[in-house]
Design a protein around this nucleic acid. Sequence first.
DNA 1: GAAAAGAGCAATAGTCACTC
DNA 2: GAGTGACTATTGCTCTTTTC
Length: 700
Amino acid sequence: MGEGRAARNARDEQQGIVIINAQQDLQKLVQRMYECLHNKVYDEGDKSMLKTLRPIIDLRSLALKVKQKGAAHVLASDGEQFTKVSKQLATNIVDVPDSEIRIQFREFIRRLERHVAQLNKEDLCSIKLIKVFLETERKLYVEMVMHVICVAAASMSVESVIESMVSIYENRNNKFRPISEERAVLEMNIAINGPELPHADSIIQERHQNVLDDKSGYDHILLSEDSWTYFGIQWVGWYLVYNTLPFGWKISPFVYHTTGLLATNFFHSIAISCSLYIDDHHNGQLQVDLHSSAYFQLPTLDERNLAAANSAIFIVAYYLVQLGYFLGLAKSTLIPVKVVPFLGFLSDSALQVFHLIPAKKEKFLLLLRKIVGQSAVSVKTIQRLVGKCVSFSLAVPGAVLFTRAMNTAISKGLRTHRRVKIDQKLRDELNHWFFLETWDDPLPWRDELHIRISLATDASGSGWGVSVFLQETVTTSDYWSDDERAHDIATREALALDKTLLSFSDSLQNVWVDVQVDNMSVATRYSKQKYSLQKGLEKFLDALPVWGIEQYIAIAEQLKINLKSGYLFRPTNQQGAIVNAAFMSSAAEARLRTYLKEMGSDDGETLHGFRSGYAITLALSGVELSEVMDHVGWTQRHRALYYLQLAKVLNPAGASSRLAQVDLSAVTQKWGDTNELRQFVSAFPSLPSQKCPHESEICI
DNA sequence: GAAAAGAGCAATAGTCACTC
DNA sequence: GAGTGACTATTGCTCTTTTC
């Protein structure tokens, strides 16, 4: 024992050294990445230019300077510098005369001075200031200056992305993980998007939307030359390397998405609601007051919405092209509409729902009809169907709830490696999905708000308490009734959760609910939705599709034994009375011993011995291993093989040859006789049932 | 008290669907 | 090729119960 522990310690120590070495290597790699990215993305000229521009393009600092020192001072100190470096930064104004840029800068600074004169120092905010200059009704748009500021802001944000990427890399690979991965992602989002996204989620009812799709986006993100060697392929004797972001690299979508977020962040900052998924831009309207701005001249609200959406797509498309994006017009929706295809659904802002795309629905129904027309189905086919059903969850209410029979079929098929027979339960579930032929009542958009529920039950069994984190924390608690207290701890926790959900049902409609429980059993039941706990154990018992169990429960009721609280299977005490306690294997073992003694055949057999012995007998009779496992109740193949010990049993000098020589009928006769219960009379009238074809075989 | 047996749990890996 | 999420199966570990 001591040696084993020493060996384990030595092994752990060795593994620890390997981990520490790997950590050190990773640290070096991170350092190299950091230096390489910084040196390659910017040359010295770029870095110097950004450093020079930073005081000018940081709107808050500039506004503060104007407020404190006046427009004339700023124009004298920064005007010439701005004119000089702006052409280096924003290439589309290269051909504009310096005089024109100076005029625009002067106009910009003077208007900035008038605006900041009304504000306190604390109210100066870059995002709010940039919006002021883009509000059309005030006609303060100063094209070149704002363009330079926006491009420079995007360039500076690139630095944040690089730092964030290095930071997240370090966090992911830190042995001690001082912050969680989710937290790191959040930090990164804040680093890229900023702490405030005032208009990011404001797709308002009846508003117009449009979709822009990037064309060959990866090809426009260049790899630094000394990275090429890591992205090589060999083809008919040639060695080729990628010099742009390669398709197929694990983090390519991540890199592309995060760089795209720079533009998205900019659009948020100028009040355009939009979202991004890799290369799909989903845009809303320009978020301006439609009742007081230039849009107010249009007669109807719908026309104003359309005009605001047109403004948004013009600005988005303009800046995306300026930033070097190529737009795939065939896959884009350039004219704003209220229903656009996005991420595999039709996004409907009028009804605020996602519709299934008709072609996709037809494809699903085609597969469904094909399956229903058969008597058995392959695992692969049923998995395809389940996958489609699950993917409909965003639009179809309770989609996952109607995949249980299919998942059971998959499980069975994977175990037996055969096609799964379509039984009545599976067929009913498959037929249920035909409702899609005429259905058009999709789920409303769910608020991304998560409401947290913290649940606690008293170990002594007296009561329960819960905290629900709404706008303010609401706490409630209650005592268990006598009936409720009789349940086991898992059922009591489930009941407490059920009561909480019902009590706060008004506040928990159509939102995500995160429940904190300390009982794995409850969590598993809810997460896998094996059964609804709304009616607790009663519903569970009602749902059991086993005729024998139904009979058992019915008979227990006639014996005045309430199985709806306490243990389902119960032992007897020494006086023969049924007690509400767990039916342990020791009790089963004792019961077996009683029967064996009664038979006069007590040779020291044990339950385990019967189980293994019967399995070995089945295996030697030619029954397949999967069927043996099913019958005996082993779920793991390796465990079955271990207990069967077939190699030993099949020894020519061992049990198999002896078994082959024995007249089994003589041996089993005694057991068969014992199995037929004699001298029993029926205590209750037999219960007729159509479910069981062999009613006479059921004994009590 | 040691060994066997099993339950429970977490991590991992695989399938499928969908998206890009 | 990557990601997401639904599911199941496998594996390795700890802990408890039972057997000898």
